[in-house]
Design a protein around this nucleic acid. Sequence first.
DNA 1: TTTGCTCGATGAGAATTTTAATCGTAGAAG
DNA 2: CTTCTACGATTAAAATTCTCATCGAGCAAA
Lengths: 222, 222
Amino acid sequence: MRILIVEDEPGIYNFLKQGLEEESYAVDIAEEGKKGLQLALSGEYDLLLLDWMVPGMSGIEICRQFRKEFKDTPVIFLTAKDTVDETIFGLQAGANDYIKKPFHFEELLERIKVQLRPKSGEHSIFKLGNITLNTTTHQVLKAEEVISLTQKEFALLEYLMRNKGIVCRRSRIIESVWDIHFEYNTGVIDVYINALRKKLKLGEDENYIQTVRGVGYVAKEI
Amino acid sequence: MRILIVEDEPGIYNFLKQGLEEESYAVDIAEEGKKGLQLALSGEYDLLLLDWMVPGMSGIEICRQFRKEFKDTPVIFLTAKDTVDETIFGLQAGANDYIKKPFHFEELLERIKVQLRPKSGEHSIFKLGNITLNTTTHQVLKAEEVISLTQKEFALLEYLMRNKGIVCRRSRIIESVWDIHFEYNTGVIDVYINALRKKLKLGEDENYIQTVRGVGYVAKEI
DNA sequence: TTTGCTCGATGAGAATTTTAATCGTAGAAG
DNA sequence: CTTCTACGATTAAAATTCTCATCGAGCAAA
């Protein structure tokens, strides 16, 4: 597995390079933005680690450009900033995950493994209209805005978005999201659908989560 | 797959026999208790459906005797009673599940399938000292007493009991029971261990859930 | 043995999740 | 077209789950 690190501080990239090579990844470094993008676009890498701020071109811009060509290669941001405003753009630019400096190497390794594991098919980012849902970071955006959801709300939305366009029966939802296998006689789903619609502010014009009377719900782009 | 039904009411057993045969199970009937046990002990069956009350010998007694010989063959009770007192004995006798009359055939079928599915290895009943935990019915007994646990309490206890004798690290517990994969910096486990010890009334003498300092917890029979 | 430090126990409060009851509306029946 | 019924929407309250702060015990170092 080949990893490209775009990062200008030798202290950090040497530390990373050594650690990752011990884990038997092949690691290349780019200290400058344009060079980084150029290398990334060569298509030889299985994963990108981008620093937020690099000379020449921002990590975000590299990510955006890279995404145009490579839809499935995971991108992880290394960032000192954890303000909401900043991470939004990272996610919008198509990043799969981000990690705040300073971080434990172990944790970064874990996240790299998570991203490389599925490789075949499994996606971590789902879109529905102007809603973006990222399963690794557990974040949801509507347009520019971060929507804060609880565990169950997130799980339900994820289920619906994974099955975009397909009508989801209540019984299946209960099985997948709530792990209940007999007895579908509960109203929880309705309550959570309600909460989602409210938090996502889905009005008449943006009715992304539609009710299918007698059956269940569908996520649809109208 | 062969199923033995021990039940004296023709109305019920004919209905069951027909339905199950349509699902391509081989079905035998015993209308009387002793005969039922004798057939069961022949070892030709993959699953037993026992009525609570049959002439000659109670379903419970059949179950108990049967369990001595066959540890892994699933037993499901058909019962009109749903009082706590009664079902306790069923579970103590080693039943894997029970269903209350009147029941929908679909539901019984579901439960039969659940019991037959794992077949290889997977158990649904776990013991730890005088504690019995049944994963299909989601019930826990301590001696004669039913212990009412919440979902999470149950899930944690199940995890510990599945790993009886093995020290469970916090990180593994968090992954399995809570499905959290990074960040182990939460105290939830402790809180739930505390709740379990309280509800199960584990004193000094019955310290079935032991703390392993710096690592996690073990379920042990002292 | 004593001291200090870390980790687990415990309890209380906040947040989430679930249940339950009521209201409104779509679709069926008349 | 009107009425009835059943299902979903919605709200409030109960139960569970989680977080946080404090306390106490175990272990190591002096």
